[in-house]
Design a protein around this nucleic acid. Structure first.
Length: 562
RNA sequence: UGCCCCGUUGUGUAAUGGUAGCACAGCAGACUCUGGAUCUGUUUGUCUGGGUUCGAAUCCUAGCGGGGCAGCCA
């Protein structure tokens, strides 16, 4: 692989390059993505997926999908299915290499017996509390368990009985015999097996002892011939243990490499916290468009490309990081700007009657489908005497830099005429309910002979032809940058009460009548929107706002408020 | 307070002993029938102190700051 076409360079590619140079793994690169099926994948996993599958792609290697299913009490087949769907959607494939740590339970059992025979593992009769008490603390060494020197034969016998279900949960555990005085807590005789009379989603009731992560993970890597086992920083202190098992067993030695997990501001990323949002019904399931899950982002309207560009763009390093959501939003705008069909939609309608336009006349105006992509062609948009415009596009008493419609002022209607506001109609409470305007026939788009220049162009929809729809506007789920980081407060206290706003009276141009679930559009001047995959029907269209357009006016307003 | 890891503009990330660059965000401008897009310009940075060196973000050292570890979770 030449320097020029290599996707990205970081400390991991440097390690791999070095291995390639020294021929440590015979020129092979074989990674794996090892999710535990106990929750849905989120944007942080997307980074790991892009990293692992991306490395395999860039180095002509392979990347396995391996479910780390060693704890049946927390795992579920629902999660397995969602994880597979999400990885595929992101655009990666594991071919037939779909593995499970539970595939290796028999082999792991054999390995454990080997270690017992070698005098490197023992069955401990201590209770969980006793084990905890003898483990010591970060500053004090632990003490040996009274069962640490049990004879090998007895260990073998007890371990087999553990496997055969002859003991209750918690009665015995299998421990590695390493060093209770190690400054690294992970080396103080870590637990390898615990007794769990739980049904496993794949092995059913075959087993009542289950391996811990530390015991299962490295050996699974080894069995699969993984060369580079990439994980997050919290496993750094586990690496000596990872290596110890592999070396004591004398099996293929994968190299564990740790990198910093991705954090995003204004959201939470731990599966535990996301699960709480789901269970407390704060959100509408794991795929709620406000969730940082892959399924949530998909429903929100994010594209796989935008997420891949994001994940690959944030880089890989070892220092803790928090990425600004603005970067994620930039990535989806960047992608959708090139691809999305443009369309006119009015979210908060204000009726406009064009008094000098003939009753009953319908003109079909030609509109460009995507100025970034000529091949997407044009469409016709009907124009009539009565139209809707965005309520925000009119101000009775406009401030200095407001360029849109106001009494006596002119604006262009996109793809149509220049109109002038002549009269404002209000209800008994003083709310503006309708505008009376006149149009200038000389100003038709593409045939303008008036020479007029206006400072603004606004979007509109013919009242007679409008399609009604519901539009859901999303804002950040939390109103505080680092909801999980506050020591004193629970993250739930930072929930943004207005993270979802539902608009029921939106008027869309007729082109959208046949929009299908998942279809993506740019509503001109407003943002990118997609048809909701969960609630939208042919009769009642529901759109999700993916992200707004960059909004210079909003910025001016915000700055003038301060 | 033991062990491990990490400190480069607001946020990320490059520079591997030789001009501190890139992206996002910010700011200013050009253009515009989307206040979109596009283009141009631009502010802000090597945690601190010593040392090695002709030369240090990079190597050494001391300090400071941040993170992780005491599940039969992963």
């Amino acid at each position: 692989m030449s320097e020029e076409i290599k996707k990205s360079s970081n400390f991991i590619t440097e390690i791999i390059d070095e291995h390639l140079k020294t021929n440590k793994y015979q020129g092979k690169v074989h990674t794996r993505f090892p999710p535990e099926p106990n929750g849905y994948l989120h944007i942080g996993h997307a980074k790991s997926i892009c990293l692992n599958f991306g490395l395999a792609r860039d180095y002509n290697g392979l990347c396995n999908l391996r479910f780390d299913d060693t704890n049946p009490t927390k795992e579920d087949i629902e999660y397995v299915d969602s994880i597979k769907e999400d990885i595929k959607w992101l655009g990666f494939t594991w071919d037939e290499r779909e593995y499970y740590a539970s595939d290796y339970f028999d082999k792991l059992y054999e390995f454990a017996v080997q270690l017992i025979k070698k005098g490197k593992a023992y069955v401990d009769s201590s209770s969980a509390e006793e084990i905890k008490a003898l483990r010591g603390t970060p500053t004090e060494p632990g003490k040996n368990s009274p069962y640490r020197d049990r004879p090998i034969e007895e260990n073998l016998e007890l371990f087999e009985k553990m496997k055969n279900g002859e003991f209750n949960e918690g009665k015995y555990v299998l421990r590695a015999k390493i060093d209770m005085a190690s400054p690294n807590l992970n080396m103080r005789d870590p637990i390898m097996y615990r007794i769990r009379f739980a049904e496993h989603h794949r092995t059913g009731n075959k087993w009542c002892i289950y391996p811990t992560y530390d015991w299962a993970h490295g050996q699974s890597d080894s069995i699969e011939g993984i060369t580079h086992s990439i994980c997050t920083l919290e496993f750094e202190n586990h690496r000596p243990l990872y290596n110890w098992f592999i070396e004591e067993l004398g099996i293929h030695h994968s190299q564990q490499i740790e990198f910093a997990r991705l954090n995003l501001n204004y959201t939470v990323m731990s599966k535990r916290k996301l699960l709480k949002l789901v269970e407390d019904k704060i959100v509408d399931g794991w795929d709620d468009p406000r969730m940082p899950t892959i399924s949530g982002l998909r429903r929100r309207g994010y594209t796989p490309e935008s997420i891949r560009n994001f994940a690959e763009g944030v880089g890989v390093a070892k220092r803790d990081n928090t990425i600004d959501v603005a970067l994620l939003e930039f990535r989806v705008r960047e992608d959708l700007n090139k691809k999305a069909q443009r369309v006119m939609s009015v979210l908060r309608p204000l009726k406009v009657v064009i008094t000098n336009y003939p009753d009953g006349k319908v003109e079909l105006m030609e509109a460009v489908n995507n100025p970034e992509d000529e091949t997407m062609g044009t469409r016709e948009v009907p124009f009539t005497k009565e139209i809707y415009i965005e309520h925000d596009d009119f101000m009775e008493d406009p401030p200095k830099k407001y360029f849109r419609l106001s009494p006596g002022n002119e604006v262009r209607l996109r793809y149509a005429y220049i109109i002038k506001c002549e009269e404002v109609i209000k209800d008994s409470e003083g709310n503006i309910t309708e505008l009376r305007c006149t149009y200038d026939p000389e100003t038709k788009s593409g045939h303008d002979t008036s020479g007029k220049k206006v400072k603004a162009t606004i979007h509109w929809v013919s009242a007679e032809h409008a399609v009604n729809a519901e539009v859901r506007l999303y804002d950040r789920l939390f109103s505080y940058e680092d909801p999980a980081g506050a020591k004193e407060k629970d993250f739930m206290e930072y929930l943004n009460p207005s993270s979802l706003e539902i608009l029921n009276d939106c008027k869309l141009e007729p082109y959208l009548k046949d929009a299908k679930k998942g279809d993506k559009f740019q509503f001109e001047r407003l943002g990118y929107f997609c048809v909701d995959t969960k609630y939208s029907t042919d009769e009642n269209l529901v759109f999700n706002r993916t992200v707004t357009l960059r909004d210079t006016w909003a910025k001016i307003q915000k700055n003038s408020e301060q």
